[in-house]
């Protein structure tokens, strides 16, 4: 059995069905890229994985545990699943260092000293330790996203979910963030990435999943997906974005 098993997942907002019978399994240490045009449901699928959206039907089983059951301990589960947002969502009233410490202190109940050490080490990893005491308001987009990654890593997650991590960045900032994510992929962290960066998906992903209108249209290894897509909708999408 795979690390993450998504079975028959449905999600609707009101009358609108945005995810239809999603079946997907993800192995441990696998990097999966979700691609597709906007409105295809890829972000919703990602948000279902840490229950920011409650699935309407179906099951998600992570590490043998069904996370969609009624009495599931959501907060404990979320502390093991990192989430990177398109708009960074750093805590504006806290410094860079405090952003990386607050989860450790409030959720993992670590001491300030321990939390600080962990925070500094991950900030070093993303190249932001020089900014530890800076206000997050003063950072550039790329710097913010790197801090957001450090904040997620400080929780030492089993899975990292990235929701269009570079879409809100200026073109010259994209590289620094992708570099950090590539390094993480090499280290064997399980990652699910929603992205519009096709070349990045090809480089970093073990598997590419193409979604269209709420269904998984096609999946496969990046080489085959980008060179010989089978489904006509995948072909149409890729010919539009890979020009």
């Amino acid at each position: 059995m795979s690390f993450i098993e998504i079975k028959n997942l449905n999600k609707s907002f009101g009358d609108q069905l945005v995810l239809k019978d999603i079946e997907l399994s993800i192995d441990q240490k696998e990097v999966v890229a979700l691609i597709g045009s906007s409105g295809s449901g890829k972000s919703t699928l990602l948000r279902c994985l840490n229950l920011l959206e409650t699935p309407s039907a179906g099951q998600i089983i992570v590490d043998g545990q069904n996370i969609t059951t009624e009495n599931f301990n959501i907060n404990h589960y979320r502390s093991q699943v990192g989430m990177i947002f398109q708009s960074f969502n750093l805590f504006n009233h806290l410094s860079v260092l405090e952003n990386c410490m607050i989860g450790q202190k409030e959720v993992l109940k670590k001491s300030s000293k321990e939390a600080k050490e962990t925070a500094i080490s991950f900030l070093e990893k993303v190249g932001m330790s020089d900014f530890a005491n800076a206000s997050v308001k003063k950072l550039s987009g790329g710097q913010k996203q790197r801090v957001a990654i450090a904040r997620a890593l400080c929780m030492q997650p089993k899975i990292l979910l990235l929701d269009e991590p570079t879409s809100a960045l200026d073109p010259e900032m994209v590289g620094e963030v992708l570099e950090v994510i590539k390094n993480l992929a090499k280290e064997g962290l399980t990652m699910v990435i929603v992205t519009h960066e096709m070349s990045f998906a090809r480089d970093v992903a073990d598997r590419v999943v193409f979604m269209d209108q709420g269904v998984v249209c096609e999946e496969g290894d990046p080489q085959t997906m980008f060179t010989q897509p089978k489904h006509p909708r995948t072909q149409a999408f890729l010919s539009r974005v890979l020009r």
């Binding site: 589960y77 989430m83 947002f85 708009s87 607050i102 929780m155």
Partner: peptide
């Protein structure tokens, strides 16, 4: 306050109260 602040906190595993 932007919803993202709330979502980021919840995704770290914080309870509603925290």
């Amino acid at each position: 306050i932007d919803d993202g602040q709330y979502e980021a906190a919840r995704s770290l595993g914080m309870s509603t109260w925290t």
